[in-house]
């Protein structure tokens, strides 16, 4: 520590990290300040808090049926996340624990499927949803996201770290395979689930293009759609947009802070 070169290196590290942290957090600060300013002030680049927060909030909440919109967003993201975690972790566990040559091939082909851009799949998906009479329903949004290839990959990687002795012991105790999964694997892997919850919830909450196409009425819109709509008026009120942006960001932030402690731990398993 007394070495001057090491000290300089130390100082440089802190400087780099401070700069990175500042750049990372600054847009959040900008958003919060924006919510307190009038539209005209935001356009002028005013970087200090103003007194328009209440007016912006009132305008935002009066523009749409906010409780319903929030319910839609939370329902879609919440149910979608729970189902995704269940189905995709089952598959990740299955691919890793019960290896067979044929399933390995299927697994390998999943990666290529991940690379097809969603815009190319929207029309056939829409036709399918119309045939199933699911246009303008929560199911239409949730169903296509449940089997997430990325999350299946993630759980398969994480399962490599799952101690096989635990499974063997459970088998000797006479537990069935599904019981091992639900009673042994899930509790042991709770950090992995916590990390996956953040990733999946974030993706569902931010889902934009597909809900836009499938949801048709005001009662069904999600917060993401509402905020996007606010920005496109002939004369957008940027103060209101900033309030909307904060409300669109808060839930994912809160979930992240709630699960943060387990998050790094959970990623740990996934990269072993």
């Amino acid at each position: 520590m007394s070495n001057p070169i090491a000290l300089i290196g130390r100082a440089a590290t802190y400087l780099l990290l401070l700069l990175a942290a500042f750049i990372s957090v600054f847009p959040f600060f900008w958003m919060a300040v924006g919510a307190t300013n009038t539209s005209a002030d935001i356009l002028k680049g005013k970087a200090t808090p103003g007194g328009a927060l209440w007016a912006n909030m009132v305008n935002f909440f009066s523009s749409v049926d906010m409780p319903r919109i929030l319910f839609n967003s939370f329902f879609i993201a919440g149910v979608g996340t729970a189902l995704t975690l269940l189905v995709s972790s089952l598959a990740g566990y299955g691919f890793e624990m019960f290896r067979s040559r044929f399933r390995e091939r299927i697994f390998g082909s999943l990666l290529l499927m991940l690379s097809i851009p969603f815009a190319a799949l929207m029309i056939p998906l829409f036709i399918m949803m119309a045939n199933l009479k699911l246009i303008n329903t929560y199911q239409a949004i949730i169903l296509p996201t449940i089997a997430s290839i990325f999350i299946v990959f993630y759980f398969r990687q994480a399962t490599k770290a799952f101690p096989h002795e635990l499974r063997d012991a459970a088998r000797i105790d006479g537990l069935k395979e599904w019981q091992i999964f639900f009673w042994v694997y899930m509790p042991v892997m709770r950090s992995t689930y916590a990390a996956a919850t953040i990733i999946v919830f974030m993706a569902n909450w931010n889902n934009y293009l597909w809900p836009l196409i499938v949801l048709q009425t005001n009662e069904m819109k999600t917060l993401t759609l509402v905020v996007a709509g606010l920005t496109s008026a002939y004369t957008p009120d940027w103060g209101v947009v900033m309030v909307g942006a904060i409300f669109a960001t808060l839930p994912t932030l809160i979930i992240f802070f709630l699960l943060q402690r387990r998050f790094v731990e959970g990623m740990l398993g996934a990269v072993k």
Partner: peptide, 10 residues
């Protein structure tokens, strides 16, 4: 998207 898909639902 809706017109192209040929469905009038919604």
């Amino acid at each position: 998207a809706q017109l192209a898909s040929g469905t009038t639902d919604g």
